[in-house]
Amino acid sequence: MAESFEPILQVEKVNKSFGSFRALTDLSFSVNAGHVFGMVGENGSGKSTALRIIVGLLRADSGTISICGLDASEKPAEIYHYIGYVPDSFGLYENLLVREYMTFFAEASGLEGYLARRRISNALEMVGLIGREGVYVDNLSSSMKQRLCIARAMLNYPRLLILDDPMKGIDLKNRFELRDVIRDLSAQGTTILISSHMITELTEFCTDLGIMAGGTMKEQGSMEYFLKQSRRDRPIKIRLSGMTDRAIEVLDKADSVRAVSADKNLLHVIVDNSSDVEAKILSALVQAGVPVVSFLREEENFEAFIKRKTGGDV
């Protein structure tokens, strides 16, 4: 994957209202070139609105959007050349063949003749649909339809591919296929901005994450940063057969322990994140003669962590 810190998309203080409903409030975030940026948030948090504004289908009330260094409102002609957009619905003409569907969008993107044919076959190859050109779109599976949408968006070799909830309505097996396609595109250097409510899937291929809530970007950072944060907040549960006070005393003295709470013989210990923190604590307790019955780092999945962050129902 191409590592770069040059922002390919920069959204600054974008506001959007629909009548009295405020969909976006001072939305700001950026996506670096070569990265896969995942946008997560509860339903109605403004993800799709933000994406529609970025691709120019909606006008922001205020704020600026720059794509590849160009102001989206100043240089719309250039912008359309740099982006590929896959909306949250398939957007397919089911009575066309795959080849005809792709040809239509190639021509709509100004591609003709040899160049169009080459781009079509490249795009279909990228998403693993080569050999399906003669199939009616209607006869494709959900995953294939979604991949066809991505192929369509890749026709103009966009520098920024925008996917609005591509996993929606796709079963588990097909989701894996789609995930592989997105991974491949990312590996080829395409910057991807993806919104999804499938947080677990996002963790597998996103390099960055933005958490949206109430029409604003609540937190943005690298996936590593969020994973660390989620691990750090997981408490250690220690069950004892006695000597609870002694155990609390030992734990209070330990460097990496941030907080200890006790519920009879069950201790909840919040610790700083370091590699051997569990080993150190267990060793200290055993050395102090505390009878440890069980010692467990509580598992909180990433989805629950994000849900906690957004305070919603992601």
Binding site: R52, V55, G56, L57, Y80, I83, Y85, P87, S89, F90, G91, L92, Y93, F105, A108, S109, G110, R152
Partner: peptide, 13 residues
């Protein structure tokens, strides 16, 4: 209704 209009509008059409 089929949300294909948005797709066309994000091309050069």
């Amino acid at each position: 209704e089929h949300q294909t209009l948005d797709l066309m509008l994000t091309t050069q059409l």
